[in-house]
Design a protein around this nucleic acid. Sequence first.
DNA 1: AGCATACGAAACGCTGCGTCTTGTAAACTC
DNA 2: GAGTTTACAAGACGCAGCGTTTCGTATGCT
Lengths: 192, 192
Amino acid sequence: MADAQRGRPRSEEARWAILTAALEIAAESGYGKLTIEGIASRAGVGKQTIYRWWPTKADVLLEAGATKADLAVPINDHGSYAADLRAFLTASYKMANNRAIADLLRALMAEAQVDEAFGERFRESFLQRRRDALAVVVERARKRGDLPPHPAPAVVLDLVFGAIWYRVLATRRRLDRALVDDLIRVLTGSDR
Amino acid sequence: MADAQRGRPRSEEARWAILTAALEIAAESGYGKLTIEGIASRAGVGKQTIYRWWPTKADVLLEAGATKADLAVPINDHGSYAADLRAFLTASYKMANNRAIADLLRALMAEAQVDEAFGERFRESFLQRRRDALAVVVERARKRGDLPPHPAPAVVLDLVFGAIWYRVLATRRRLDRALVDDLIRVLTGSDR
DNA sequence: AGCATACGAAACGCTGCGTCTTGTAAACTC
DNA sequence: GAGTTTACAAGACGCAGCGTTTCGTATGCT
């Protein structure tokens, strides 16, 4: 085989140590205090091993989150648009109300604003996936004839993720039942 | 008078040069490339003059925005909740669709995630003021008997600002008429 | 005149960046 | 089992920017 593996293979142990160290430091001291040298030192790893596999420390965190945290949201069919929404929102706010995960997401979103290239990676590998997931729920409602004419599907995504992210980033208030209930009311048009 | 001014007064000229230089550099090269030394150099000012009056470069930008950009939103009475909302949202999305202002807001929001102390200042001096403004609109609607039972006033704020910020920070899509229309529909309960 | 504070300029030590070098380790190829 | 290739830990390197300090000067008040 021409493209058989050549040379020493990547150390899975080092990768794991790096991801763990990054999460630990970020959790203990905050993203602002996270440095490549700090990660390397705690992981017992050379800096070059980090630079070889990740372009920035934010990418390390992004992979750490994807690998070690369960960021999946359920999009099973619960029979109605309202029930599907409730399942999605409940799972989402359990995530957002988890301190460690919220801090991680805030750091990634912040870095995405400052580093344009990372921003694209973050949007594609995280934000867009979550949009796609909710879009499935909306599309299912449309096929069921369950979807009100307004708001438009694109706006549904903006309202749901907007409200969640705004609380996480701006007001720092917990996501609660009241928000979820009103959100469902508003999106299903069940005021009347 | 005991507390009369003593010593050389603060140079208004230097202050203005610093705010201008900060905005220019951020606009030209992005917030990631903004440095205190860069600001001082372009403004023709000693670094100490910056450190004497602002704790961080983000605070410089925050004051620059407050001083040089018109960030006011109209909360005049337009006769109905829907009309008030439309005026508020229209003004907001004209702001958010202005590239320079959007970039500035993204940088400030990003820094607020990383620097806890600045985050509080940002919330108090900017985010909360805008929440207060919209709260006036909502309260007026309530007094008029114009306000639907849902969503609750607090959720109204989350939905409006959430949608705006989410587009600015996450999808980078322009705010458009469709979003404004759907938002008004949803908040006034005028589906029916 | 004397005092207090701000100013521009520049030097300081420090931290973390991203690169590079060194010697060793772990896989495959012949 | 000798040779090749890539990854590894460790650490040195020059650089940029930080926040502080020092200097001599400027501008207000009493």
